[in-house]
């Protein structure tokens, strides 16, 4: 994982301790004690069950583009919070907090049924609820 592009937030574990998280498949693949922030450009936004999946092109410290796969809540849950299939589009600039995968791949969990992480699109925060 690229150190220049991710910023570990010390408050991450505290946030999660007070906010139970729930995805239908659990969170076993993610390090729920960590929250990192990634910055990049939306490559794709897949509005489908069981969870919305976003691909974000993130440049590493060598200037190379990395494909980050970010999982969000189910479409029905995001819709409760006002999201639609048009909330994101390719090319949007995004700053997103995410729980990174335990094994160090560029996959993360940014939203579940009852947990919300910071998600800023083109300078505007999007809320889940």
């Amino acid at each position: 994982m690229n150190k220049l592009l991710v910023f570990f937030l010390a408050a991450g574990s505290l946030l999660l301790a007070s906010s139970p998280v729930f995805a239908h498949h659990g969170t076993a693949g993610y390090d729920m004690d960590k929250i990192i922030t990634i910055k990049g450009t939306i490559s794709s936004f897949n509005w489908s069950n069981p969870h919305v999946v976003i691909h974000i092109a993130v440049k590493n410290d060598k200037g190379e583009s990395q494909d980050w796969i970010v999982e969000l809540a189910a479409p029905s849950m995001l819709a409760r919070g006002g999201w639609t299939k048009n909330s994101l589009k390719p090319g949007d600039e995004v700053v997103a907090e995410t729980h990174p995968a335990k094994n160090g791949v560029t996959t993360g969990l940014s939203g579940t049924a009852n947990a919300l992480l910071k998600f800023v699109v083109n300078g505007k925060p999007l809320s889940f609820y």
Binding site: N49, P75, V105
Partner: peptide
């Protein structure tokens, strides 16, 4: 009430695209 169907096509695609990446050997 919204649509929250369990489609095996979508479920398997999600597991392949997202979940399985997290159980690959560490980099």
């Amino acid at each position: 009430m919204a649509e929250a169907l369990c489609s095996l096509t979508e479920m398997q695609a999600f597991q392949d695209e997202v979940m399985k990446t997290t159980v690959q050997p560490p980099k």
